[in-house]
Design a protein around this nucleic acid. Structure first.
Length: 115
DNA sequence: GCAATGACGCTCT
DNA sequence: CAGAGCGCCATTG
């Protein structure tokens, strides 16, 4: 369970109006490339949790097909995060731990990235 | 105690 | 460039 708490704490560190991906959270939490654990930890979150789980999205910047996804999108928009059909602007809202201001230059330019 | 699954990500084809 | 498969660790049955 300690594992979950660690992840929750990391998620809680996400600044308001910003989002992060499972992979990023996993890495920051101390689990390099272990997004499944993050997803599983969030899955175990209680309903009245104080953890901003809605700020966690997948690498595509899209909300995973989980029950309440629509509610998550509302919460994000409520915090000022614009969610488009193409997903959230990770280059704008993606938060990468520490006070990095999320200044991702080339991001990881894995595939497509920003069209 | 063993086996399968899971709110995903990366690499290969 | 696009699509599919495999891998990681922990939790649950």
């Amino acid at each position: 369970m300690n594992t979950h708490v660690r992840i929750w704490k990391t998620v809680s560190r996400i600044p308001k109006g910003r989002v992060s991906t499972y992979g990023t959270i996993a890495t920051l939490a101390g689990f390099p490339s272990q997004p499944r654990l993050v997803g599983y930890a969030l899955h175990a979150l209680p309903d009245g949790t104080d953890i901003p789980w809605h700020r966690v999205v997948n690498s595509k910047g899209r909300i995973s097909p989980r029950p309440g996804a629509g509610r998550q999108r509302s919460l994000l928009e409520r915090e000022g995060v614009r969610v488009t059909d193409t997903g959230i602007k990770l280059e704008r809202y993606l938060w990468k731990g520490g006070g990095t201001r999320g200044r991702l230059k080339k991001a990881r330019q894995k595939r497509g990235g920003g069209s």
